[in-house]
Structure formats: structure tokens, C-alpha cells
């Protein structure tokens, strides 16, 4: 069998299996230029549940199948870069394995299996930039873009409101006769959604989880240490009650006693390392702490 016949036979078989799901593009010389197929995960014909897809483009070199076809994956939807890279690797392995034999059917099946396994968008919501977790309610638009229902609802409500406001500003004869048309935030294609239903969705989990602030063990320990320090300072008169102090007279003694500087070297309890020496009188603390710093620098 000649090369051309082998290729022809493979393509006929593909057309018989995939029918309209595959398109074969011929060049002006009548040779096969490109084999193209949009691949979806298998979901027992439930189109609503197909959340990802990719377009496979196979270019056949003249001596195919004795040399490897050139593969391109285009318009991936709901798939992030790492998933695509993984798919590319798998495809190359398959091509090596099937060198000299028809491989296109195998490739389509390989991709379909992979998509079926990861039939949950691995990309991020373009609105909040967070991913999709289990339990998040999200929408796949007709143009295969993904949004949390919560985010999409906000978008639709605000653009709808904006449209109305802009219309009201215009004189009657200039107003658009068309009703508001919601568009996809990513590609601006028209989308048709029920805002009232979307509105009921909870915020995305990742967004919500990130907001939660938990008191960890470390924080509790830190809190306890600070409390101890506070009590220590208070017992030594280091904490000043501003209201009580306001009615007192402030007396500053300017004694040049070097003892003050030495005192500050004694750290006291380990917690109070950075705190001035314990003193009995709160008023003096302020003055002397300042002073001791000054003398120790000299």
C-alpha cells in the first residue's frame, strides 16, 4: 500500500468514527493539510457537564506515518498551563510509541481520557483571580470561560446598572432601543444568565477561607508573654495612668548620678530585656530612662 493510501485509509476511518466532530482541511494541491478536532471530556452526552475542552490540530508531514505528525493544542478552555504541558508530554510519548502506524485516533482518545479525569476548570476565575474549589458554584459560559457565580452575579448587576444609568443620561431620541445585553468579561461575547439565581451563590471558598483569621498557638504564647510583661511593668510602676497623672505636679531632678546608667545594664527578668530598670516612681521613670540612654552613649 502506498503512503498516500495509508493516510487516506486512516482519515476515512476517522471520519467514520467521529463524523462531524473532526474536520480535514486539504491544501490547494489536494493533499491533506490539517486534521482538526475540538475535544471534550466524555460525560455520557451531558453537554452541560463538560467544563473543559481543547482543539487538537494535527499537521501531517509528507512521509507520515513514518515520521511524527506536528501537534498543536489550541484554544484550551478551563485548563491551566501545567495541564497543557502535561498533555503535550503524553502526546509526544504516544507519537514515539506509534511511529510508523496511524496515531490520530490514539491521540484523540488520549486527550479525551485526560480531559475526563480533570473535568473541573483548573484555571482561575478572571474576576477575583482565585481558583475553583470543590463546592464552589460556578458558571461555564457559552464561550467556555469560567466564573464563580458570586463574581459573575456582581459583574452582571453592576454592568446592568451602569447601562441603565447611561441610558437615563441620554435624551430620549438617543437612547438605545435594544435591551441590556450581558457580555462575557473575558471575550465580550454575549452571555445569557439568570442573575437572580447567580446572586444566591456564596462567595468563593478560597476567597472566603483566606479571610479567616485564626489565633494560632504561637500567637497565644506571644499574647501570654506580653501579658506577663505588662503585669511586671505595672507592678513596678512602669505603666502610667494618664488621667491620674494629669493632676499631679511634674518635678524633674537633674542629679548627675552615674548609678542611673549602671542600673540600665541589669536586665532584670529575661522578659524585660529591653525595658528600663524597675523604679518605684512612675514619674521618675520617664525622666531617668531618657537620661540613662544619653549617658550610656557617651
Amino acid at each position: 500500500m502506498s503512503q498516500l493510501e495509508r493516510v487516506q485509509e486512516e482519515l476515512e476511518a476517522l471520519e467514520a468514527i467521529f463524523m462531524d466532530d473532526i474536520s480535514i482541511i486539504y491544501n490547494e494541491r489536494g493533499c491533506v493539510d490539517l486534521v482538526k478536532s475540538v475535544i471534550f471530556p466524555s460525560t455520557a452526552n451531558e453537554v452541560d457537564k463538560q467544563y473543559v475542552c481543547v482543539t487538537l490540530e494535527v499537521k501531517l508531514p509528507e512521509d507520515y506515518p513514518d515520521s511524527k505528525p506536528i501537534i498543536a493544542l489550541k484554544s484550551p478552555r478551563g485548563l491551566d498551563d501545567s495541564t497543557i504541558d502535561h498533555l503535550h508530554n503524553e502526546i509526544q510519548k504516544k507519537c514515539d510509541e506509534y511511529l510508523g502506524q496511524p496515531v490520530i485516533y490514539e491521540l484523540i482518545e488520549l486527550i479525551r481520557e485526560n480531559l475526563t479525569e480533570s473535568n473541573l476548570p483548573t484555571c482561575q476565575c478572571a474576576v477575583c483571580l482565585y481558583g475553583f474549589s470543590d463546592g464552589d458554584s460556578f458558571t461555564k459560559t457559552q464561550c467556555f470561560h469560567y466564573f464563580h457565580n458570586y463574581c459573575l452575579a456582581n459583574h452582571l448587576i453592576i454592568t446592568g446598572k451602569h447601562f441603565k444609568e447611561e441610558q437615563e443620561k441620554l435624551p430620549a431620541w438617543k437612547r438605545s432601543t435594544k435591551a441590556f445585553q450581558a457580555t462575557c468579561p473575558v471575550c465580550r461575547d454575549a452571555i445569557y444568565c439568570d442573575v437572580d439565581e447567580l446572586k444566591t451563590a456564596l462567595p468563593p471558598r478560597e476567597l472566603d477561607d483566606a479571610q479567616k483569621f485564626e489565633v494560632t498557638h504561637d500567637l497565644k504564647v506571644l499574647q501570654q508573654k506580653m501579658q506577663q510583661l505588662f503585669n511586671y511593668q505595672k507592678s513596678k510602676g512602669g505603666i502610667i495612668d494618664i488621667e491620674a497623672e494629669e493632676n499631679k505636679l511634674l518635678l524633674i531632678t537633674n542629679s548627675n548620678d552615674s548609678q542611673v546608667a549602671d542600673d540600665s545594664v541589669d536586665p532584670g527578668p529575661s522578659l524585660a530585656n529591653n525595658i528600663a530598670p524597675p523604679l518605684s516612681n512612675g514619674l521618675q521613670t520617664r525622666h531617668q530612662r531618657h537620661y540613662s540612654k544619653y549617658t550610656s552613649n557617651r
Partner: peptide, 15 residues
Amino acid sequence: MTDMSPSERRLQKEL
């Protein structure tokens, strides 16, 4: 850390 609004979360991510 204080509670952040969705818009702040998104800005933080973009930053």
C-alpha cells in the same frame, strides 16, 4: 491581620 474585602484581596493578588 484585618478582614479584607474582595476588592482588596484581588488588589493584593495583582500587586
